[in-house]
């Protein structure tokens, strides 16, 4: 009994903080989303959002860009994680540090880097022009391609580390066994490694998808005002047009989407951590 009192006292400040500054704000948001101008219960904000082709366009853009970004991250992340798992530990540590470095750098700074690279006269359009792939010097800024490139760079570390954690636990002897039974390198990769790595790939992808649909800074800066995503729409409603109830409703829709993706993620990562 006194043990519990002691532990409660230890965890108390943290519980209080999360209750007041995390749970309650989300509850406040849920509440605001169903309140009308005269504080009556209403679904008007949801109806407004879901019946307006403009907002549906934003939702659709957010979803398909996120799917694309997630797929690219998994496609690069799996082979990268596999190679990392099979190299010398010292080299692996260096690669991990190099991958974590951007992860720990402010997303604002990284996006700025892409603005320089993708803008008019930037290294990438300039090179494409000089190599003759495109007819003139142009800008990649404010395109969906820019959003995808920037977001893949932001999310690739998450996906890779998530897959790496699983691949590292795959017994190397399984591969050797597979080779002795007549499977080639690629057959082994496909039949043995890929299925075993699948929980990590799925978990990493779900995480990347969640972060992608809710990301704000990178899509706003690289996509510009003409290519808004859901997060940008929430931000505008909350800070520019000051329609808080509408912003709350959009956040609830985003939250529901995120939770749908997170439920299998928690199951996957929970099983992994035993």
């Amino acid at each position: 009994m006194r043990d519990r009192v002691e532990d409660l006292a230890l965890a108390g400040p943290g519980i209080l903080l999360l209750a007041l500054a995390f749970v309650l704000p989300i509850a406040e948001m849920l509440g605001l989303s169903i309140l009308g101008t005269h504080r009556e219960l209403t679904l008007e904000h949801f109806i407004r959002f879901l019946s307006d082709p403009y907002y549906l366009g934003i939702v659709w853009r957010t979803i398909y860009l996120s799917l694309l970004i997630t797929a690219i991250c998994a496609a690069i992340g799996f082979p990268l994680a596999y190679v990392m798992a099979r190299i010398r530990p010292a080299l692996r540590l260096w690669l991990i540090v190099l991958i974590i470095l951007p992860l720990m750098t402010s997303v604002v700074v990284r996006t700025f880097g892409w603005m320089v690279l993708l803008g008019r006269g930037g290294l990438i359009p300039f090179t494409l022009w000089k190599l003759g792939f495109v007819g003139r010097n142009f800008t990649l800024m404010h395109t969906e391609a820019a959003i995808v490139i920037g977001m893949v760079q932001v999310l690739l570390p998450f996906t890779t580390l998530s897959i790496l954690g699983v691949v590292m636990k795959i017994d190397r002897r399984l591969e050797e066994a597979s080779r002795t039974m007549g499977a080639g390198f690629f057959a082994t990769l496909r039949i043995v490694i890929l299925p075993l790595a699948m929980p990590g790939i799925l978990a990493g992808s779900l995480l990347a998808f969640t972060l992608s649909v809710s990301s704000f800074v990178t899509p706003s800066l690289l996509g510009g005002v003409r290519l808004p995503v859901v997060a940008a729409s929430i931000y505008d409603a909350a800070t520019k047009t000051l329609e808080w109830n509408f912003a709350a409703a959009q956040s609830v829709i985003l939250l529901v989407g995120v939770l749908l993706a997170l439920t299998p993620y928690i199951k996957l990562s929970g099983r992994r951590h035993g």
Partner: peptide
Amino acid sequence: GLFLSPLILPSIIFAIGLLML
């Protein structure tokens, strides 16, 4: 789970809630 959930729940969702609250 509660303590670790801010890690995976996108911060924009809780940021706007905090602003409103």
